[in-house]
């Protein structure tokens, strides 16, 4: 807290609210900017560093006093043990299946629908779009009661599927609820940025609407699709509340639940929890490091009107 506040204080000072713009000030200003950013990055990465070294400490050493902030005797045994002693391979598999299926559904529907919303002024376009914007604001947690009832006894398909409680299908269906409107919205905004002249050119070249969409527009939309897919995947991968309400065994439980299960009473098994947490965090960290520009563009498209 104090760090944050002092960062802020220095920040205001660094912006040089009363400075006159002479050359040495510019240099000083940059140095201060580097310093502040460096400090900020250090502070926010410290917890990640701490949980990482917790995960590679021997599990007994986690409760040593004084606390060591450097990895003495690093070990991978916590990682090995969570796969040996708990069905972590199943949790991981569930997370992968649920997140990728949700992503596939949302990206496919979101892309085609977003395109139509962007290009065609059909009847109800505005109203439907507004309802999609509205749908994005519905707090998912408000719907835990209806989703629980619906998944226990699904209408229409219930005769075929039986109860969907504690299945991956229940999670996939639920996750499309908050990802699909988002996907439609990002893709609509993305297509808005693709010049309509391309559509016209395709039509002049004798392409049907479908051909034009698939051959000309879709390739242009790849970055938008990538951004949508990455965000939908991350949102689904990280989801906790519905997984808590709709699953009860490792046939459907995902990694966030698996990690929370280390809090047994208040004997928290920190070393193994840290290892499990690092595994759950891995896709996020990798996406963040390597696909940062897609996440940024997706969020920006999704949030700000073009």
């Amino acid at each position: 807290m104090s760090t944050n506040q002092s960062t802020l204080g220095q920040l205001i000072a660094a912006l040089g609210l009363d400075t006159d713009n002479e050359w040495p000030h510019v240099v000083r200003e940059r140095l201060v900017a580097y310093g502040l950013l460096g400090l900020y990055v250090f502070v926010i990465w410290f917890p990640i560093y701490f949980i990482f070294i917790t995960s590679i400490k021997p599990s007994g050493a986690v409760l040593d006093i004084p606390i060591s902030f450097l990895p003495t005797q690093p070990t991978v045994s916590n990682y090995v043990e969570i796969f040996q002693n708990r069905p972590f391979e199943l949790y991981t598999l569930n997370s992968l299946i649920v997140a990728s299926t949700t992503t596939l559904i949302c990206v496919t529907l979101g892309t085609v629908t977003g395109y139509s919303f962007s290009r065609y002024d059909f009847v109800g376009n505005k109203a439907l779009l507004l309802s999609i914007v509205g749908a994005r604001m519905i707090p998912p947690i408000a719907l835990i009661v209806p989703f629980f009832t619906i998944m226990s006894n699904p209408p229409l398909i219930g005769g075929l599927t039986g109860s969907l409680y504690d299945t991956r299908i229940a999670l996939i269906l639920t996750y499309t609820f908050f990802n699909l409107p988002f996907a439609v919205w990002i893709m609509k905004n993305y297509f808005d940025g693709v010049p309509e002249s391309l559509d016209e050119q395709a039509r002049i070249d004798g392409c049907s609407r479908w051909e034009g969409f698939v051959k000309i527009i879709l390739p242009m939309a790849k970055p938008g699709i990538a951004a949508t897919a990455i965000l939908a995947f991350i949102f689904s991968w990280n989801e906790f509340v519905f997984a808590l309400v709709l699953t009860s065994s490792e046939q459907a439980q995902t990694l966030p639940i698996a990690v929370s299960l280390f809090v047994a009473d208040d004997f928290v098994d920190w070393a193994h929890l840290a290892a499990g947490g690092m595994i759950a965090a891995l896709p996020g960290i990798l996406f963040g490091l390597f696909f940062q520009q897609y996440i940024v563009s997706g969020l920006t498209q999704g949030a700000v009107k073009e």
């Binding site: 708990r86 629980f148 226990s152 109860s163 409680y165 504690d166 309400v245 009860s248 065994s249 490792e250 929370s260 299960l261 809090v263 047994a264 009473d265």
Partner: peptide, 18 residues
């Protein structure tokens, strides 16, 4: 299936309501 003690009653209630 190991369930943290203070979640177990809620888990069982959820399972059996269903």
């Amino acid at each position: 299936n190991e369930v943290p003690w203070n979640n177990l009653k809620t888990s069982l209630t959820t399972i059996w309501r269903n």
